[in-house]
Design a protein around this nucleic acid. Structure first.
Lengths: 122, 122
DNA sequence: TGAACATATGAATAGTTGTTCAAGTATAGT
DNA sequence: ACTATACTTGAACAACTATTCATATGTTCA
């Protein structure tokens, strides 16, 4: 906040920028919401994770399916699946020694759609 | 691809997992689309940039407004605005020595809405 | 012209992130 | 019990990112 002379009281009161910043401060998103939003978008903001989520679009898949499809080590896939799991974007079910992963959230594919609209326009 | 004995031809042909991976490979998103998607989401996946975009929701703001609002140096804000500019998420207009930034894309706020739905549910 | 202001930019640095590698658990088949 | 398979996990390392600091550009006002 800049210091103003007493001759400038009126200026300060009517200074539109001061008002705007003040109003905006009241309307700001809560800190935890901002961080949660950032977390989700950051999570979806990785090529490997995008490919995994997209592959799971129709049906559940096991780690080795994903490993073959993306041509990456199952360790790398497993690490990324953990990230997706931690953010509740995928869920899993065990069957013997294989683990099947599937999407855990309806919004993700909507987000994809919106993102694609942005990407494909121009 | 695992090697199979000739006695197992039928198994290979009818192995559902092999079929699934093959089908998925055909349906994969194009590499450049995947990368562009990742770029957008990564760009929106930062708390500072989220706050900037949210502040610009209603009206254009200059760098020093944003600097005051977010209580960060104008240099930091400027760096982030460049990232947003590079990804075509904000545009700017100069008026004297001040530069006004505003949203350059309709989809961004839709993405925010979707993201918020995910965040606020549970 | 000179001082103050608004913004931009390059380099540096601390923190974060994705993949690999090596080792671990757990289940299935022989 | 042994071996192979499916997956997970921790550590390590390289690549990337956000902020700071110092400096530069361009504009306004006196």
């Amino acid at each position: 906040m800049t210091v103003k002379s007493e001759f400038c009281d009126m200026c300060e009161i009517f200074n539109p920028d001061q008002d705007i910043v003040g109003m905006l401060k009241e309307n700001e998103l809560a800190t935890d919401v901002v961080y949660k939003l950032a977390e989700i978008f950051k999570t979806i903001g990785d090529p490997t994770r995008i490919r995994i989520l997209y592959a799971l679009k129709e049906r559940e898949l096991c780690v080795c399916d994903l490993s073959e499809l993306l041509e990456m080590s199952s360790s790398a896939i497993s690490h990324q699946l953990r990230v997706l799991r931690n953010h509740k974007l995928v869920k899993f079910r065990k069957e013997g020694r294989t683990v099947y992963y599937s999407l855990d959230d309806d919004h993700v594919m909507c987000l994809f759609g919106q993102g694609l609209q942005h990407v494909l326009e121009d």
